[in-house]
Design a binder for these strands. Structure first.
Length: 518
RNA sequence: GGGUCGCUAGCUCAGUGGUAGAGCAUUCGGCUUUUAACCGACUGGUCCUGGGUUCGAAUCCCAGGCGACCCA
């Protein structure tokens, strides 16, 4: 097309390329006027939301003398001949700019074309710095009556429709920066996420826990059942894994004498993507010497209730339309009892795996084909029949030993361990247990895992010999727990998808690979 | 992995076999109290990609891509 041959002064612009060319031309015009369309700084003394709150009582038509200086992005322009109203958005909110040619002409004497530039060379999307006084217009809108302004950054690309915004979900995730500009609730979600993470960190620091960072790159990926990402270190020429948990290293620190440690960090699991799963996600794991799983259930109730209270101001929340009461105490019920309650099956009474499989098959409630033990079958039935029904916060406790290779055996019940999983809104949100400290038992558990791995279970762990050595030096009785920060943030921000609480979730490339034939 | 739905202008969406549409944005003109400003004029398209059927495909068929939801 020969249409774009005259970029100097496009007569009209509609396609993205044409809009961009028009704006580049405005950049040039600003530069020719001696102005920098990509400025260095602005003295920001005020923010929109603060001003809105502080002057909430200012009556229509009233003005105040105090000078304010703010900066932000132009979200809307309403331009008249010698008067203009812009809506400016900063991190806190929006405020209207009252741009009067007369006022600007009197104060910006060194820029005789200042008002004309405002009308002709600024666009929705540009970043603007302004100084002025405050007035509430006759129509009741608090406004900065601008005396001085500068284009701080000229935007070359247009923002989405001011009314309908950006709704294309894929585009929202791929271009989160645009999503954040035009969808204020998205900013609020990430603001809350930061508050939640900060509150969690403060909670543990206030109780004497030390945050100690452990390796992401590991020779053996342990501490959970999950497929790891594999990478390679060139100069050592060795295969490394990205961590699937922080557990085994934090427990080494407990062996080393720290009594309370935690780590908030990124975990990587090479598994599917869904509304509840992202390949990299954030967990907090924390460990306390001389404590057991009863202590940590109490701690968890208090932690999550106090986070909700401090961030949301309440412990009674609504998640996707369902009321959820986070007020402690929460129900504690064993996996055996809960499965019995929902299905009538009493796994304590089965004498063989075959008998149990027969009973499960007779009810037609779960596919236990892949289960090689009573404990795994019990877990399978739980996951298929019970898990999603646990809406109100519930501690599922005393899991089968077969699915809990790092937990201490129950002090009075054979076959189960001292473990709890917290379910809220049908989702596992936390997992903790009295830590297995017996190195002989731990070796047997690892070897059982290794055998599964050898048999083709890609989620099974290998034997971590160095961790066993650490245990042989002696680990104090300890309780440990991990909480999925993303899922907790989903719950507290009423977000349906984990992608709504991860700023830059992993996405498939949005174009087909064209390099296949080359 | 299976099923359903979606993909058309920068954005939000109509268009179900016969000339590719609207609103907003953009561009131009007007306007000193607007706030989805208004009034007038204009501009803007690989209809996700590739193949097929047809005189003719955004539309029907096949394959693929990306996404949403549901199921496993």
């Amino acid at each position: 097309m020969a249409k774009t041959e005259s970029p100097q002064s496009p007569q009209s612009a509609s396609t993205l390329d044409e809009i961009r060319a028009t704006r580049l031309d405005k950049v040039k015009q600003l530069q020719e006027a001696g102005l920098n369309p990509f400025a260095y700084r602005w003295d920001v003394t005020d923010h929109a939301a603060d001003l809105q709150a502080k002057y909430a009582d200012l009556a229509p038509g009233e003005e105040v003398e105090a000078e304010v200086a703010i900066a932000g992005r132009i979200l809307a322009r309403r331009v008249f001949g010698k008067l203009a109203f812009f809506t400016l958005q900063d991190e806190t909110g929006t405020i209207q700019l009252y741009l009067d040619k007369k006022v600007i002409g009197q104060t910006m004497t060194d820029q005789p074309d200042a008002f004309t530039h405002l009308k002709q060379l600024t666009d929705v999307g540009d970043l603007l710095g302004v100084k002025g006084t405050l007035k509430r217009t006759d129509k009741g809108e608090l406004s900065v009556k601008v005396q001085d302004y500068a284009v701080l950054t000229k935007a070359l690309l247009p923002l989405p429709d001011k009314w309908h915004g950006l709704t294309d979900v894929a585009k929202r995730y791929r271009q989160r920066y645009v999503d954040l500009i035009v969808n204020p609730p998205v900013r609020e979600t990430f603001r809350k996420r930061a508050l939640i993470t900060s509150a969690i960190r403060r909670y543990f620091e206030d109780r004497g826990f030390l945050e100690i960072e452990t390796p992401v790159l590991q020779g053996e990926a342990g501490g959970a059942e999950a497929r790891p990402f594999i990478t390679h270190h060139n100069s050592l020429d060795m295969q490394l894994y990205l961590r699937i948990a922080t557990e085994l290293h934090l427990k080494r620190l407990i062996v080393g004498g720290f009594e309370r440690v935690f780590e908030i960090g990124r975990i990587f699991r090479n598994e599917g993507i869904s509304t509840r799963h992202n390949p990299e996600f954030t967990s907090i794991e924390f460990y306390q010497a001389y404590a057991d799983y009863h202590d940590f259930m109490a701690l968890t109730e208090d932690l999550i209730a106090s986070i909700a209270q401090s961030v949301l101001g309440t412990t009674e929340i609504t998640y996707q339309g369902t009321p959820i009461d986070l007020t402690p105490p929460w129900r504690r019920v064993s996996m055996h009892d809960l499965v019995k309650e929902h299905t009538g099956l009493d796994f304590h009474q089965f004498e063989s795996l075959e008998q149990a499989k027969g009973a499960v098959a007779a009810l037609g409630i779960a596919n236990g084909d892949g289960c090689d033990s009573l404990g795994r079958l019990l877990n399978e039935v739980f996951e298929q029949q019970v898990e999603t029904t646990l809406i109100q916060p519930t501690f599922l406790i005393d899991h089968p030993v077969e699915i809990s290779p790092l937990s201490k055996p129950h002090r009075s019940q054979p076959g189960v361990v001292e473990r709890f999983e917290l379910f809220i809104a049908g989702r596992e949100t936390a997992n903790g247990f009295s830590e297995l400290t017996d190195p002989i038992d731990q070796r047997q558990r690892f070897e059982a895992q290794a055998a599964r791995k050898a048999a083709g279970d890609l989620e099974a762990q290998g034997v971590d010999e160095d961790f066993l050595t650490a245990l042989e030096y002696g680990m104090p009785p300890t309780c440990g727990e991990g909480i999925g920060i993303d899922r907790l943030v989903m719950l507290l921000t009423d977000s349906a998808s984990i992608r709504d609480v991860i700023a830059f979730p992993l996405l498939k490339p949005d174009r087909a690979e064209e390099g296949m034939e080359s």
